[in-house]
Amino acid sequence: MKKFRGSSDYVASSELMNAVNVAIALEKPLLIKGEPGTGKTMLAQSIADALEMPLIIWSIKSTTKAQEGLYMYDTVQRLYDSQFGEGDVSDIKKYIKLGKLGEAFTSDEQAVLLIDEIDKADLEFPNDLLWELDKMEFYINETKEMIHTKHRPIVIITSNAEKELPDAFLRRCIFHYIEFPTDDKMREIIKVHYGNVDEKLVNEALRAFYDIRSMRDIQKKPSTSELLDWIQALQIAGCDVNTIAKEIPYMGVLLKKNQDIDTARAYTFRR
C-alpha cells in the first residue's frame, strides 16, 4: 500500500502523516481543520506529489451546490440547439458535463481529490455528498447511467470552521486538527522554503513573530505564509539583524489591518 511520508517542500508532522495514512488505508475522506496558513490546502498537493497522483481541486464557494461536483446537465444549451437544429439533440450525453467529483471518480489512475474550504458552502452541502463520498458512485438521471469509481480517489477536505459540519458527515471522516507550528517546526518550514537563512535573522524574526501573535488585541494574527514573505523581505532588504525584533521593519507584510499595525507599534514602543 502507498504510504505518505511528506514531500520535499512540505513539512508534515508525524501526527499528520499518520492521519493521512489512516485515511488512505480505511478509504475514508480526511477532514483537515486548522488556523489559516497552517498548510491545509498545501497538504493535498504534497500528497499528490509524493504519491505521484494527479490532483483534482474542487474549490467550494458560498454558492456551490453538491450537484455541481457530480455533473451538470446543460439544459439551456440543449434547448437552444433544438431550437436552431444544431448538433444531435437526442444524444443527452453530450450535454452532461462531469464535475470535479465525477472527474475524480472516472479518472483512469487513482487521484487525490481536494475539496477545499467545505465550510464556505451552504450548511446542508456536506449532507448532500454523504452517499457519493461513502460509496464513491452516483447516478446520472438524464442518461440512466451509474458512475462508479475505477480507483477510489484519496479525498482531502479542508475546513476553516466557519460553519459547523453536520454530524452524519463527520462520522464518515477521519479528522485531524493542524496545530499552529511551534518554533522548531517553523524553523524547519523556513529551511524547506529558503534553504539556509542566516540563523540570527531567523531567531530575531521568529521572536518578533511569536511576540506579535501573542499580543492580545491583534485581530488577524499573522500566519506562516506571512512569516515566510516577511523573512524574504528582510533578506532582500538586508536589514540590520539586531533591530528586527525592536523595530519590526516591513510590518505591513505581517499585519494586514491598520488597527493591528497600530497595536503592534504601541506594544513595541512600550518595550
Partner: peptide, 10 residues
Amino acid sequence: YLCRNILIKT
C-alpha cells in the same frame, strides 16, 4: 493519534 483521528471530529 489513531483513536483521535477516527473518534474525535472537532
